[in-house]
């Protein structure tokens, strides 16, 4: 047993569960790849690669850049941390686009003919929701700024701190 664990790197139960799982995977994969195997494989592996090596690095980089730019403008920075007033509406708006882009960008060509509905409404609605999200976020920030200015006399450099408890 100890020799097995040293060779394998885990207990025998680990191996049995994985083999059972791979057997089912193999059974389903033979069928998944029965038609257009190369294209299906590209979609399957591509899904993971596209997310892990493109989407996630891109949004992380965008987020880091935004945080960085704001940090280097410390002099004229508002007295309350405001990165999340940018981050949250950008995340929500991006999420809606990520899910509904075929309709928003009018890529789903069979849609109007099949459903009898026009897809012209989606881009405008997505933009309207995006605008509303940023506007609400701006109003929330304005209220926080006003509250922090009232709490601290103008010119006091120490400010209310970066506590962030609203």
């Amino acid at each position: 047993m100890a020799r097995f664990v040293r060779w394998y790197g885990s207990g025998p139960l680990h191996l049995l569960v994985l083999i059972a799982s791979f057997a089912l995977t193999g059974y389903a994969m033979v069928r998944l790849f029965a038609v257009q195997p190369v294209r299906v494989a590209i979609w399957f592996v591509g899904a993971a690669v596209l997310h892990d090596l493109l989407l996630l690095p891109l949004y992380s980089l965008a987020d880091l850049s935004a945080v960085d730019v704001l940090r280097h403008r410390a002099a004229d920075r508002p007295a309350v941390p405001w990165i999340n007033h940018l981050r949250v509406p950008a995340f929500l708006s991006g999420l809606l686009l990520l899910v509904w882009f075929p309709l928003v960008l009018r890529l789903a060509t069979p849609y109007p003919g099949a459903t009898g509905l026009s897809y012209s409404v989606y881009l405008g609605r997505w933009l309207a929701i995006t605008g509303t999200l940023f506007a609400v976020s701006a109003v929330a920030l304005a209220l926080r700024l006003r509250r922090s200015r009232r709490a601290v006399p103008a010119g006091n450099a120490s400010g209310p701190g970066r506590g962030g408890t609203p």
Binding site: Y27, M29, R31, V35, R39, V40, W43, Y111, A114, T115
Partner: peptide, 21 residues
Amino acid sequence: IQLYYVFPGSFYRLHFYGAWV
């Protein structure tokens, strides 16, 4: 669900067998 049929082949095949994998 958005009728954007760019995936390779029948949705039923891909989604059913993909679910088992």
